[in-house]
Amino acid sequence: MPAASPSATSLGDRIFRWVTAISAALVLLIIGAIFVELVRHSSLSLHRFGLDFLTSTRWNPAKGEFGAASSIFGTLVSTAIALAIAVPLSLVIALFLVELAPPWISKVVGQAIELLAAIPSIIYGMWGLFVLAPVMSEYVQPALGRTLGSLPLFRGPPMGIGMGTAGLIIALMILPFITAVMRDVFRMVPDVVKESAYGMGATTWEVTRQVTVPYGIHGLAGAVFLGLGRAIGETMAVTFVIGNKHHISASLFSPGNSIASTLANEFTEASEPLYRSALVELGLVLFGITFLLQIGAHLWLRRLKKKMAVST
């Protein structure tokens, strides 16, 4: 550190430290406040339904019966589908951009990906409904039905909308985010490390699998969780294509709903207190799911780190 006049440094430092500390505290405060508000406004529904809220599939605003099971199911399944598609694809794209592509291609494609990330989700939703859904219903779903129709996953009328299409749309939406982070992670792997592996006669694949990926595993996992965070709360695009039915089905063709889509659909016209309260509780459930996933992710990552430290 270059020596400046000590008093100025310490004052500046102190101010800086306070500003950062307050900003950080603000984050916690906001999260806490959100939680408190969610609980406060959902108290009516919490008292009425208790834990049944999580397991009941009944959702009947006209009769005042509310259960979150189908929304929770839809949220988890659509997110899982999206990650299953987006993560491997992002990994491959990022590797291509960093390891294999000539610099100019890498630059152009990289820019294009960042541009994709800036498209508002409503546009993805419209595109999904007017472009992707027809393609799904005319080509993709009939083909899947013919070939794999014996599996419960691909049963039902090919309507083009439903859980599968929703998962696909979310995958397209989170792909740029995951790819961009993964690309940055791969870039940060020191050339020395890679070159020494190549020097030992390793192929590109071996270097990737045994050097690049393990080196950046923390960052890669971070990329996945960033995508997960976006996918789980994605609202407008999902609402357009998921089919919006409070219903649990094994088929990817059949309509379902997610917590976010239910909120987007029903909040504006929910005038009865219990209805509103149940919707807020859905928000609370989403909050809880995200929180649990975060904790799970951290624990898993810590174990992974330990294991890798042992194996190398």
Binding site: A62, N265, A270
Partner: peptide, 19 residues
């Protein structure tokens, strides 16, 4: 029953009239 949103016995839901 009657409502702004009901438990539909069958079908899919579109968002808004345009949906």
């Amino acid at each position: 029953g009657t409502g702004k949103a009901v438990a539909w016995p069958t079908g899919v839901g579109g968002k808004g009239n345009e949906g």
